[in-house]
Design a protein around this nucleic acid. Structure first.
Lengths: 182, 182
DNA sequence: ACCTGAACACCGTTCAAGT
DNA sequence: ACCTGAACACCGTTCAAGT
């Protein structure tokens, strides 16, 4: 990649991260191009679909997912508390930007999505937690990782779109945790 | 209301019902106006916000909600089966149009939404089922009607946006049902 | 090879003119 | 009182011209 191309690429991603944070995932691409001081064509050259830009923005967020999962697995307390705590972290992880929970959760399990690799990161994180609880025989034996992603993602999506706070989300996650445990 | 106004109102709603069914809730209002053979201003006069049009389109659907609830309450079988069967009907009811589950579920509990009365119909329907199961002491005593609407609506939203079929939805509803029962 | 920015298409929304 | 449709603003997307 040529030096000026890389410079533009980085500027666009940096600006997009700010704009998505402030205005959500449906923010105007035109404004992102303007703020990054590039023509709209340049943005399209680097990111043919909006989701390609989302994927680039989420790149720096992968590390945080791993850290959060590591930390959740060291949780002291009952299996139920561990699971519940993880679900809250999961909701927080995918709710960084308005509109994020819906986009991420609907892409989950779709191999053609531009954000597929990010979905895999989340799916694997969930897998680690489920596996740990599986060692204790704490979960139903028919639980599917992707189903759990969709269930918790569904709660996050509703919370995001209805503007619910953590206090309103918690009891819903409790229902999920109870429904998933033996 | 003047005769020509009523005629236009009815035409718009009729056309909108078809277009929403074919293209989902995000269909172009311009196209609806064109197909109904009215100017865009006429559509805006009758329906200042898109959701006012949704509300009018959903009017004829209220009867079906009541019928479906009546039928679900006569279900022979265990409490769990009754609840599960009702959840499946609920998902079907709010999934008539693409984009519907998200709009309806995020409006749930918001008194300012133009589709508030439709949300109340759904909430009351859920209340009747919960009350019935409450008589048998089958449910946790801390379940809130609106939480149930959000949980089942969240599953419906994810299914709608990811294009999942009934077979993929069922196990998720089972988790919800199990999590809600004692 | 990459960028620019004019140009196009589409959509929501408003409002002056008309009946 | 209601309708019409031109007009405006905004946005995504493309592509010929330029470096």
């Amino acid at each position: 990649m040529r030096a000026d191309a890389k410079r533009n690429y980085d500027r666009i991603v940096e600006v997009a991260r700010e704009v998505f944070r402030d205005q959500g995932y449906d923010a105007s691409l035109d404004e992102i191009a303007k703020r990054a001081e590039v023509g709209p064509g340049t943005l399209y050259r680097h990111f043919p679909k909006r989701e390609n830009l989302l994927d680039a923005v989420m790149q720096s967020w992968v590390d945080r997912v791993h850290e959060t999962t590591d930390k959740a697995l060291t949780h002291e307390g009952s299996d139920r508390e561990l699971l519940l705590n993880w679900f809250e972290e999961y909701v927080a992880l995918i709710s960084q930007h308005k509109g994020g929970p819906a986009k991420i959760t609907s892409a989950m399990g779709n191999p053609d999505s531009p954000i597929m690799t990010k979905c895999q990161v989340l799916s694997e994180a969930n897998g680690r937690v489920i596996e740990r609880l599986g060692e204790h025989n704490a979960l139903r034996d028919d639980v599917d990782v992707i189903q759990v992603c969709r269930l918790v993602g569904g709660v996050a999506t509703v919370a995001d779109q209805a503007g619910l706070d953590a206090d309103a989300v918690r009891p819903m996650l409790e229902v999920l945790a109870d429904g998933l445990m033996r």
